[in-house]
Every structure is written in structure tokens, then in C-alpha cells.
Computed example of a mutant assay.
Amino acid sequence: MTATPAIPHVVGVLGGGRMGAGIAHAFLIKGATVIVVERDHESAAGAQARVAEAVAKSAARGTLTESAEEALSRFSTSTDYDSFVHCGLVVEAVPEDYELKVAALKAVEEHLSADAFLASNTSSLSVTGLASQLRRPGNFVGLHFFNPVPASTLIEVVLAKETSPELAATAKSWTEALGKTAVVVNDAPGFASSRLGVAIALEAMRMVEEGVASAEDIDAAMVLGYKHPTGPLKTTDIVGLDVRLGIAEYLHSTLGERFAPPQILRDKVARGELGRKTGKGFFDWTD
């Protein structure tokens, strides 16, 4: 008889922005006690509001097995890393900057028990490189969630060179317990999803830049012709042009010229046109 996949009883999330709140929500509605640690009280309050809103939406859709109040009774926020002391798993979800992630992961590890697991939600940075900075690299893995987390059915499990076989199997079972599908990849620049997704998006940007077609028509071609749920340019707006630029620059440095960021992307980021979060990117989001 196959055992039911289980998630850790207590899960921590470092960073309560859009992704971190989504990760917290995913574990919370499956029965875990969840703690989000943020850099200050204002950010922690924002994380609290985001998770509460997500839980309320789940309740409205009828996807909770308990009331929203009961789920939220297991959720808390903090500005103190000591709050992670009882966690079986902590997922780091800070901005996509290598030095920032290293500092954050090392600080979290100092507050974890020896048998606790640590994961990064990085979408492109070297998981092996991050693991090399930790005292227990075998307890570290990449868990690349996708935005928006509640609607996405995919988690990319990224194995560092020193990730233990036990953790590799356990991370896949966590994904199943969350009601999502795991894609397991060995550490490489951009993994599988970001590498392919960014390659398509950069070419779509070049086509806009060269006047081949409008952003609307390029996206329609991929949605209608290839059954993509969202076109590459609208996806870029949702992810954030600044985030996509950072990933492209990293892939350019590691994989070569085919990932060189187009000038149109650099120009839009310089003008503050970052996509949905600023109201304008390749599309107008003001409505």
C-alpha cells in the first residue's frame, strides 16, 4: 500500500512577497503550520494580508477542507529568524540576487535543527553554488514554484550536486502532497523551465523590436497555435520585466549570446515599465 505523501508539520518561508505568500498559502491549506519571516514589521503585515486574501479566495472557491479562520490560526509572521527553530522545512523566497540569497540562507541555517531541510525558490541561480555556502549542503534543494502559486500545478525540484537522495525523493513527495506535479532536474543555468521560457520570451521581444508583429499578435500566435495558456510577453509582464532581465543577464553570462537581453527589455526596465506591478510593460495593466 502506497503511503500518503506528507508535508512537514511546520514550514517556514523567508520573504512574504507575491511568491513567498503563495508558497505559504500552498502549505497552509494542506494542513501545515506556516511562519513567514520578513525584514520589518511593515513587510510582515503585507505578507499577513496577502496570505489572508489568498486563503479567503480558496474558501470562496470551496477548495478548503476547513474554515478560513481555522487555516489562518496556523499562520503567523515574524521579523525574527528564531521563529524558524521548530520548522522541518524553510523555503527561501527573497529577490533573485545571488549574494542576497547566500546571506539569507546562511542566516536561516543557523536557526534550524540538524535534521531540518532548507530550500530556495530561485528560478535560475546555481543551486549547487548556493549549497556550497552552507554547512549542511545535503539538506538543501531547489523548489522552484511558479507564479501564481495557487493556480500553478508545477514545482521544479532542482538537485544540487550534494542534495541527498533521501531529500530528492522527499521533495518530490512534498510536491505531490501539495497537489502539484514535480519536474526533477539536475542543477544547470536556468534549470529547464526558466531556460526554455526565457528563450521564447527574448525572441518574442526581438520580434516586437524588429517590427515583425505586435505584442498582442505574437502572444496570440503562441496561445492559439501552440496552446500556451498565456503568451510569452504577457507572462513576462506578470513575472516582471526586471526579474526577466536579471535572469537573462545570468543566462547570458553562463550560456552565451543566445540569451543576450534585447535593448527593448533594457529600455523598458530603465523607464520603470516592469509589467503588471507598475501598470505597464509590453501591455497596459492600468485597468
Rank of each mutant, 00 (worst) to 15 (best):
T2V: 14
T2A: 14
A6L: 14
H9R: 15
G12F: 05
V13A: 01
A21K: 03
A21P: 09
A26G: 07
F27A: 11
F27G: 00
T33N: 12
V36S: 07
V37I: 11
S43Y: 01
A44P: 10
A44M: 10
G46H: 12
V55T: 04
K57N: 08
S58D: 14
S58R: 08
A59N: 11
R61C: 07
G62E: 08
E70I: 10
E70G: 03
E70V: 13
L72H: 01
F75S: 05
Y81F: 15
S83H: 08
G88D: 00
L89C: 01
E92W: 07
V94E: 05
D97N: 11
Y98A: 13
Y98L: 15
L100N: 11
K101C: 03
A104N: 08
A104G: 00
L105W: 02
K106R: 15
L112F: 14
S113H: 09
F117L: 13
N121Y: 06
T122I: 06
S123N: 12
S124T: 11
G129Y: 01
H144C: 06
F145E: 03
P148V: 05
P150N: 08
P150Q: 06
T153Y: 06
L154P: 02
L154C: 06
E156A: 08
L159W: 03
E166P: 04
T170K: 15
T170G: 02
A177S: 12
L178K: 05
G179H: 06
A188W: 00
E203I: 02
V208Q: 12
E216W: 04
D219V: 08
D219L: 07
M222A: 10
G225I: 12
Y226S: 14
K227P: 04
T230P: 03
P232R: 04
K234T: 11
T236F: 05
I238T: 12
V239C: 00
R244K: 15
A248G: 12
E249P: 02
L251H: 03
L251F: 12
H252D: 12
G256T: 09
E257T: 14
Q263A: 15
L265P: 08
D267Y: 10
L274Q: 04
R276Y: 06
T278G: 06
G281T: 14
W285Q: 09
D287G: 07
D287R: 13
